[in-house]
Design a protein around this nucleic acid. Structure first.
Length: 473
RNA sequence: GGAGAGGUGGCAGAGUGGUCGAAUGCACCGCACUCGAAAUGCGGCAUACGUUAAUAGCGUAUCGGGGGUUCGAAUCCCCCCCUCUCCGCCA
């Protein structure tokens, strides 16, 4: 969430930032709305002040037995009562409108972020590692996995549909080994605290990290039967009008059109959401808190499944396990002071890179341009790992600094010694790294001509000491 | 899931319609006393928004969250969330 006060003082900067992300200018509208809000608030507060004064006087008058005076004061306050109630209702409405508008604005990119429209404008920062040379045509991971008999998409589809897979045997273990290895590196060497957060979270948490209100369609919903019942009930009772039903009956509107319309009106009040990344629960660990500045930075890591609907990705990366509805990821989250967040981004990116270095995987780091950055980010480095089977670099980690954008939504603050007012913390998140994609990368980079996979040196202790993964005869 | 109890400032904990943003204790900060410390005494000590040059003053709101009743709500009513105890179910 961007501070409305900052917008008041920097309307040009806001619109410039929005333009760089391909969005329309809104500063003038927001400022107008805010002015309306403040004007209205002022008059409301004056009325409330008068009421409070009179009410106190009533109490005093009654206490001293002056009933006549009390009555005249009661009559007086009764007159402004309706005015106050109407004013309060309007204040709520204006405030809601402003907060809603603000909560849909993306973060302002840092000055050193390249301006661009899409991934073609991202800027490569460095390449690390040597691409492996093969004396044969390298295969893609799913060809290797299926040939080994340890990766089965058809079987997964029977149970869960497309964009799932089943790993078995040594390949399943390799996936586990990767996750363990990454956690050990981050907890043992990089100072991150191992955490096991909830995978189902409430609206507020999703709102805090800004998946909501704008990106609900990317998420999966979790609900109990009773919870779902309550929701259907409220959709029917509160958000579907008689006019809707009449329009439906008369054929004026189709059911396909009415349903999204009703859902649009309803607030996104799900019982639970499945996390699309551990960034959500980890970052929300500091919500509604005032931390001691001396405690910062906080560094947390977690290995969790992630669930993404991949809406809008139909037809993209449909083969293999590159883009699944469910995958494991090691996430890093840092909570810092405002002075140290920029350097923390470099540090965090380095932590993610270290994993790839140890695994011997070639990669490159790119700075995302303004148009390609996520909603909450001020600056993002993507790490792209080399996939020989695809003959391409593919994203395996994304490290972002969000400034106080998420902290404002979560009311996560810290106190600096000697300062009266608490400040908002800065938040960062990054994958360290995506486990499923790391598995792909290891398979493709360590493949042998006979279809076996050599186990990277650093994973051997996690693999019972075996040298390679081969098909079971 | 059923029955009951509860949610108040950093913590503990009073307050059941008025002068309560809220007693008291602890913690914390300042001052006094002291060679210094402890003890003691005095004072201070929430957040957001508005106004403002101001993180000074003043105003408004906030006692889990949201609505309502009332001239006036921490206190009464409704809905929701959370915690605890007992029972049931369960990895």
């Amino acid at each position: 969430m961007i501070d409305i006060k900052w917008i008041r003082e920097n309307p040009g900067k806001l619109d410039e930032a929005l333009a760089s992300r391909g969005a329309k200018p809104v500063a003038i509208d927001l400022i107008k709305l805010d002015e309306r809000r403040r004007d209205h608030l002022k008059t409301l507060q004056e009325l409330q002040g008068r009421r409070n004064e009179a009410s106190k006087a009533i109490g005093k008058a009654k206490g001293s037995g002056d009933d006549a005076k009390a009555q005249s004061l009661i009559d007086e306050v009764a007159q402004i009562k309706a005015e106050i109630q109407a004013g309060e209702a309007e204040e709520r409405a204006i405030d809601l409108a402003l907060v809603d508008a603000l909560s849909r604005l993306p973060n302002v990119p840092l000055d050193d972020v390249p301006v661009g429209t899409d991934e073609a404008d991202n800027v490569e920062v460095r390449r690390v590692g040597e691409k492996p040379e093969f004396g044969f045509a390298p295969k893609e991971h799913f060809e290797l996995g299926e040939a080994l008999g340890m990766m089965d998409f058809d079987l997964a589809a029977k149970i869960s549909g497309s964009r799932f897979n089943v790993l078995r045997g040594k390949l399943a273990r390799l996936e586990r080994a990767l996750g363990q290895f990454m956690l050990d590196v981050h907890t043992g060497e990089h100072g991150y605290e191992e955490t096991q957060p909830p995978l189902l979270v409430r609206n507020d948490a999703m709102y805090g990290t800004s998946q909501l209100p704008k990106f609900g369609e990317d998420l999966f919903i979790g609900a109990s039967m009773t919870g779902r019942g309550h929701q259907v009930e409220s959709l029917l009772e509160t958000y579907t009008t008689q006019a809707d039903l009449d329009a439906l009956k008369s054929g004026e509107i189709s059911l396909e059109k009415l349903v999204p319309q009703v859902l649009e009106r309803a607030p996104t009040e799900e019982e639970f959401w499945l996390i699309p990344t551990a960034e959500v629960p980890l970052t929300n660990l500091v919500r509604d808190r005032v931390l001691d500045g001396g405690q910062l930075p906080l560094r947390m890591t977690a290995l969790t499944p992630c669930f993404r609907s991949e809406a809008g990705s139909a037809g993209r990366d449909t083969r293999g396990m590159l883009r699944q509805h469910q995958f494991n990821k090691v996430e890093m989250v840092s909570i810092t002071s405002e002075e140290t967040s920029a350097s923390e981004l470099e540090r965090m990116t380095g932590c993610a890179e270290e994993v790839l270095k140890r695994l011997g995987l070639p990669y490159r780091v790119v700075t995302l341009c303004t148009g390609d950055m996520g909603f909450a980010a001020r600056k993002t480095y993507d790490i792209e790992v080399w996939l020989p089977g695809q003959d391409a670099y593919r994203e395996i980690s994304s490290c972002s600094v969000c400034g106080d954008f998420q902290a404002r939504r979560m009311a996560a603050r810290y106190r600096v010694e000697g300062e009266k007012q608490p400040r908002f913390v800065h938040t960062l998140n990054g994958s360290g790294v995506a486990v499923g994609r790391a598995l792909i990368a290891v398979m493709e980079n360590y493949q042998n001509e006979n279809g076996s996979i050599t186990v990277p040196e650093c994973l051997k202790p996690y693999m019972g000491g075996i040298e390679r993964i081969e098909a079971v005869s």
